[in-house]
């Protein structure tokens, strides 16, 4: 219905290609991968810089702390595996050896969310944002598309401190033009509007834009914020949206518990109470193609639009 066709591109390929470019500029970058280099695309760095690329086997916990050790000796480790295996399996290691010690480690994970698809529940990382948002010293970024991914990876290499970057398995809609400039910690206002605001990240940015465009034709102006940086969150943009539009819908391919919705609701409740509707997941999903699962979960333009109608009704 509201979904307009747009070109698709792979965030994990953008990662592999950017990493290979950065390898030239940053001789201190080393890459560690948990036996998934052909899937996370770190193999592209591995081919270009075999001496600085390490297969770490299927040892996520070991790999995280080795990276911490490397970082404290001047290296800039990028560590990759699937999102669920880093954040769920090696959480304690990320917490103490990386977050608490402010280690300069970049954890970049692919296969986030339910678009991972056919592999089923075990592979669907739907709690990684909730987990990493509690890692006090981390910067957490969930890029909306391949263009933003490339810039976020570069920003991580250039910025001291631990990062978690959340990427996808399938190619995803491109919502930016090549002249786009990503800034850590700044919400990107992609549509102006006064009637309500949709705050989204990752795969939900495109449906948010589609809904805003559709309702725009019907005379309602819906602001859209791409909240690519989850931590540190852009509080100012959230409070401003609450003050200026009086109603907020959040949308994400993640559990409602502990995701962007919880973060936004907590900030508005404390600083500028307005009705908030949260679009997200609340159970485990099963095998299916990624986009079938997204439709089943209501993570679509239709789902976001329904939440807008609800939040507007509550605003009145």
């Amino acid at each position: 219905m509201t979904t307009t066709a747009s070109p698709m591109a792979s965030t994990r390929e953008a990662y592999g290609d950017t990493l290979a470019q950065l390898g030239k500029e940053f001789p201190n970058i080393v890459v560690l991968d948990g036996d998934l280099a052909k899937s996370t695309m770190t193999i592209r760095f591995g081919k270009a810089y075999p001496d600085r690329f390490f297969y770490m086997g299927i040892q996520e916990q070991n790999m995280m702390v080795i990276a911490a050790g490397l970082s404290r000796s001047g290296k800039v480790p990028f560590v990759s595996t699937f999102a669920v295996f880093a954040t769920a399996r090696a959480f304690d290691q990320m917490r103490l050896a990386i977050s608490q010690m402010k280690a300069n480690v970049k954890v970049v994970c692919t296969h986030a969310g339910i678009t991972t698809g056919e592999d089923g529940s075990s592979a669907h990382a739907i709690e990684d944002i909730a987990l990493t948002n509690t890692l006090i010293n981390f910067t957490v970024i969930a890029p909306a598309d391949a263009i933003e991914t490339a810039q976020a990876i570069r920003a991580a290499a250039e910025t001291q401190g631990p990062f978690y970057i959340r990427l996808y398995r399938p190619p995803t809609p491109v919502v930016h033009t090549p002249d786009y400039k990503f800034t850590i910690g700044k919400a990107e206002q992609m549509r102006y509007g006064d009637d309500a605001t949709i705050i989204a990240y990752g795969n939900l940015v495109k449906p948010a834009l589609d809904v805003s465009d559709k309702l725009g034709k019907e005379g309602k102006t819906i602001r859209v914020l791409n909240m690519a940086t989850i931590r540190p969150i852009d509080r100012e943009a959230i409070v401003k949206a609450a003050a200026e539009t009086g109603a907020i819908v959040t949308a994400e391919e993640h559990l409602k518990q502990g995701g962007l919705g919880s973060i936004v609701a907590s900030i508005t409740a404390q600083e500028r109470p307005v009705p908030v509707e949260i679009v997200g997941l609340d159970r485990y999903y099963k095998s299916g193609t990624g986009w079938e699962l997204m439709a089943q979960a209501g993570l679509t333009a239709e789902g976001v639009e329904a939440a807008i109608h609800k939040v507007l009704a509550r605003k009145r």
Partner: peptide, 8 residues
Amino acid sequence: MGSHLQGH
């Protein structure tokens, strides 16, 4: 979709 035979 809908199968009891999951990927894992």
